[in-house]
């Protein structure tokens, strides 16, 4: 790679584009455009933060799980999420930022996490609905990401996906038991599905990026521009709206088998399209609802910040201990 233009990038750009064209992975030591680095970092960091914040709504039910089997499953699931956070922070670190910087960005609100988790988990059934719907949406998003163009992210996704698929089944199984329990349990299951359906459909897939997503033309055009860039770089493989449709198609027959009603009267099979139709998402209304719900968003972040600040003395001790060991090693 010797050809460079005045900016020193020409030959590098060709090489980068050639790797993408050949559907090969971009690795940390490869040259990459700043925009690509920023876009991958933004996505991986948001994903990592979502895993960590996503532990909260379910983690809050660990002490109240209604059977020892469910308690063990939930512990294993929340533990997996911590593990996913670690894989993803490691992937993000290959782009030249430290975990401490990433956590500061989360705590300071300059990097985001999936707003889905800004909904409160009010009953035990929510642990089932979150795992079935939110993790179910995550799997739909993440399966294509196993082939995303940035190598460390793709490899992290392969490990994450296997566990996520299991979580979906766990959540389905929690709801399955409730739906076959007492009328009060069935009611609890339906209520949880009512509250988690729209957050999963809307927020796990991001804003509409085609007019099919129920957006006005201007919103869809903005979303489409971002998606086009991301897809040209091989970061994303499908539009948000394609993935959203895939998720709805997965869920409808599962809900029928469970015996719960998805809270969207417009859901019906469309023979012509070969997909389920579903009601348009009123994004404006949804954003307002989220704003109303910002009490929970503040609580999620405050919980995270408090854990981090309460643990500062522990991390300082680890650093001091490691430095002391290093000095001992030097003088030995």
């Amino acid at each position: 790679m010797t050809t460079t233009d005045a900016s020193g990038e020409e030959g590098f750009t060709e090489h980068f584009e050639a790797l993408l064209a050949a559907d090969e992975r971009i690795e940390p030591r490869d040259w990459m455009p700043d925009g690509y680095r920023r876009m991958v970092l933004r996505q991986v960091a948001q994903h990592a933060h979502s895993e960590i914040i996503g532990m909260q709504p379910e983690g809050a039910w660990l002490t109240r799980a209604p059977s020892l089997h469910r308690k063990a499953s939930l512990l294993a699931k929340v533990q997996d999420e911590a593990g996913h956070g670690l894989y993803l922070y490691s992937a993000a670190e290959t782009l030249g930022v430290s975990r401490a910087e990433l956590l500061d960005a989360l705590h300071g609100g300059t990097q985001r996490y999936a707003a889905t988790f800004n909904h409160p988990a009010l009953t035990w059934a929510d642990t089932g609905a979150i795992a079935w719907l939110t993790d179910g949406a995550a799997v739909v998003n993440q399966v294509p990401l196993c082939h995303t163009s940035y190598g460390p992210y793709a490899r992290a996704m392969r490990r994450v996906c296997q566990e996520e698929a299991f979580h979906v089944r766990q959540g389905y199984d929690v709801l399955w038991s409730l739906c076959r329990g007492t009328p009060e349990q069935q009611e609890m299951a339906q209520d949880a599905v009512n509250r988690w359906w729209l957050p999963a459909v809307a927020l796990m897939f991001g804003p509409p990026d085609t007019t099919a997503g129920g957006a006005d033309d201007r919103t869809a055009a903005m979303g489409a521009a971002v998606s086009r860039r991301s897809m040209a770089w091989g970061i994303k493989r499908h539009t948000n709206d394609e993935l959203r449709q895939r998720f709805v198609d997965n869920c409808v027959p599962q809900a029928e088998r469970l015996g719960v009603t998805l809270p969207d009267p417009a859901i019906r099979w469309n023979e012509e399209r070969g997909h389920y139709d579903f009601g348009p998402i009123d994004w404006r209304l949804f954003r307002e609802a989220l704003a109303d719900n910002s009490q929970c968003a503040r609580q999620r972040l405050a919980h995270r910040v408090a854990a981090h600040e309460d643990g500062a003395w522990v991390r300082e001790a680890v650093d001091a201990y490691a430095a002391g060991r290093y000095e001992e090693g030097q003088s030995a």
Binding site: I52, M55, L62, A82, G83, L86, Y89, V314
Partner: peptide
């Protein structure tokens, strides 16, 4: 269980839950 999401590091969230 009450430590999970409250530990000083993510590694410890994982270790304690394990």
């Amino acid at each position: 269980c009450a430590w999970v999401t409250n530990a000083p590091t993510i590694e410890e969230d994982l270790a304690i839950s394990n």
